[in-house]
């Protein structure tokens, strides 16, 4: 299973810093919420439930966008394998 890299620093402004390779990112507020939930070890399903409860969005769109976002986190090497 992939989880968010523990060393990632994220601030409320949406600034994400990866100390391993020195790369910086910015996320939008909903992206900040998702990463924060991931840091609390929430699973994808739980995160989706949270989004559906708080935002006006269809489950299909939400699932697709969440998978896409996770894909981008992986692409940017912000995820790691959990042993």
């Amino acid at each position: 299973m992939m989880i968010i890299n523990r060393n990632i620093a994220i601030s409320e402004t949406g600034f994400v810093f990866n100390p391993i390779n020195g790369e910086s990112f910015s996320v939008n507020p909903i992206g900040y919420e998702v990463i924060s939930l991931m840091k609390e070890n929430k699973q994808a399903d739980e995160i989706m439930q949270y989004l559906l409860a708080n935002y006006q969005v269809e489950p299909e769109t939400c699932r697709k966008d969440l998978e896409d976002f996770m894909g981008m986190l992986k692409h940017h090497l912000l995820l790691e394998d959990k042993e």
Partner: peptide
């Protein structure tokens, strides 16, 4: 400091 870069980048 990284915080300065962060501030200018985000804000």
């Amino acid at each position: 400091d990284r915080e300065e870069y962060e501030k200018i980048s985000v804000m």
